[in-house]
Amino acid sequence: MELAFYSSAAVAILATLRVVTTGNPVHGLLYLIVSLLAVAMIFFALGAPFAGALEVIVYAGAILVLFVFVVMMLNLGPELARQERQWLRPAQWVGPGVLSAALLAVLLWFLFGAGTGALVGQGTVGPKQVGIALFGPYLLVVELASLLLLAALVAAYHLGRREDRR
């Protein structure tokens, strides 16, 4: 299980790096899909199969389909890849890179300092426990999230409405 965890974590990191560094947008999305699948594998290795399956269904299977849909429509050619490579100069990424490295250091310090997290592969959180947790202690949060989504839906409907139909 630990082997599965570390190998899928390595795949996730490498694929995400390629998402940033690749010039071709569709290849970037392909790497992003691989990265999300690797994160789903991490969930499986940690004993949360429900979260892993939802990761694949929602992110890899639905949201990225829309991303690919939009990128396909833009008909981006080789000159865009050249432009992307131009943008990816050290002057552009050194600043954000240093800030991210600082965040990573803090994260690692917490992880190794605290060390109270559950071990890999200890117990399995099935769909039933997730459901009970969502509609028990976290009911208010779920309802708030659904209100937020409803507001987003109404806003999207308003933005997508055609004015000339009046």
Partner: peptide, 22 residues
């Protein structure tokens, strides 16, 4: 014999779409 059975199918059906799109 997966406990998440049907979800596994949904996940793979979602990924199968990429075949056509790519």
């Amino acid at each position: 014999d997966l406990d998440i059975g049907i979800l596994f199918f949904f996940a793979l059906a979602g990924l199968a779409v990429y075949a056509v799109m790519f």
